[in-house]
Design a binder for these strands. Structure first.
Lengths: 224, 224
DNA sequence: TAATTATGATAGTATTACTATCATATGCAA
DNA sequence: TTGCATATGATAGTAATACTATCATAATTA
């Protein structure tokens, strides 16, 4: 079914739509793999070009630079996340149940029903967890925010925020709790893999269950 | 009084101790200013060298590369934060009061009593808020963690964690809540300046009071 | 068949991220 | 005072990065 849905990304992020051509799709697919492998800092267009047996010049026809490409990938992920959140809660009227499902989607994006062959959502999810914060923690955030580069991310928060409001209409900090849920979920996955002292979640078999349990506990406490 | 205290930073982060010489102190002072001004990505040793009227070669005698210099600054900040947390809670026995003070220190590091002329704590605090996450969101986090580059950060979390445990000995998620407090506090300051849709805190006069109020509210709810 | 478009091949520039060498100044030790 | 170590500066050089430009050619489309 997912085959019929396509993700639309802010067109200021690319020069030429990478989803529209073979080479473009190759760039997306392999940039995700390479950034995951090398880290964003060590990833270069040259390395990507060599990897896909193309040239730097060709890649520059799609993206201005690697930051834009990276923001493109982040936006693709956020748009996809928005779709997943929407899609999985469409017939759920109980807001508490809805929030629970949203937490599950955030944690376990593996339940995907959208397969775009040129994007590996699992690797992308990992990439977002590891490097995602770099997308908006930059000196140029204001300028990029003006260009709408964070709309999709803000939409994810808005959806969470909306659901919190449905649960507790008089809750005074919906937006901060929404962004906290997002960041806390991701960072606890990251911490459990790399900085275990910073999390109560152990990396292992039932990590996702543990994390869901914890996030539900925290959210329940906060929303009373 | 602070004049007599010095901050010790993991010696694997530098080649030659920058706190031990004029040039080293100049490097620290001006790297903070320049990274704040240009952003970490656009900051280079060449620009720093020109700025302080020295040479790249001289700077490389102190730091291997800019990542190490950046990690040094982060560590300096974290060590300093640890000192501030410790120093401000030393005679406070009520753990709830202690946590409240710790939140205040996190939010308003302006109450500083340690003046090292070669570090501007205010700019450094801003820098940590804007770029701090880049310190540990990297592909090389495991290796760097092994070298102890995050000990000071983990110590901050440990102190928070400890205090939470004093408040509620049976609380199951002290570590995750501790890291959440840290990250949420910083990101809400950042968001209120740059991505207001992601926070309930408005940038302005009484932001710090509002933030403290919110963080206390959240923590109170979570700890019951 | 001609025209357009997409990609590849190649070259070139400025900047970055270093490393190496030599000269000089400064301080301390004998 | 001489001498020696140490710190910094000055200069040069290399490989990689981050682009930009031009031309050739293959594939599409009109």
């Amino acid at each position: 079914m997912g085959h019929f849905l396509s993700i639309t990304v802010n067109d200021k992020l690319y020069i030429k739509d990478p989803q529209s051509s073979d080479l473009g799709q190759k760039i997306l697919k392999n940039s995700i793999i390479l950034i995951d492998e090398l880290g964003l800092d060590n990833f270069t267009f040259k390395k990507l070009a060599d990897h896909i047996e193309s040239t730097e010049a060709s890649i520059y026809r799609y993206f201005e630079n690697k930051q834009k490409l990276f923001l493109y990938l982040l936006n693709w992920y956020w748009e996809w996340l928005n779709f997943m959140l929407e899609n999985n809660t469409i017939n759920v009227s109980d807001p508490r149940k809805k929030l629970r499902i949203m937490l599950m989607v955030l944690i376990d994006s593996a339940k995907r029903n959208l397969d775009v062959e040129y994007i590996d959502e699992d690797i992308l999810h990992r990439l977002v967890i590891v490097e995602g914060a770099k997308g908006y923690h930059t000196k140029f955030v204001d300028q990029q925010n003006n260009e709408g580069f964070f709309l999709a991310y803000k939409q994810v928060c808005a959806s969470l925020s909306q659901t919190i409001m449905e649960i507790k209409p008089d809750f005074p900090y919906t937006r901060s709790v929404a962004s906290m849920i997002l960041e806390m979920t991701f960072s606890n996955i990251y911490f459990s893999d790399h900085l275990p002292k910073l999390t109560s979640i152990e990396s292992g078999e039932d990590r996702q269950d543990e994390l869901l349990k914890m996030m539900e506990f925290i959210v329940d406490k906060i929303l009373g």
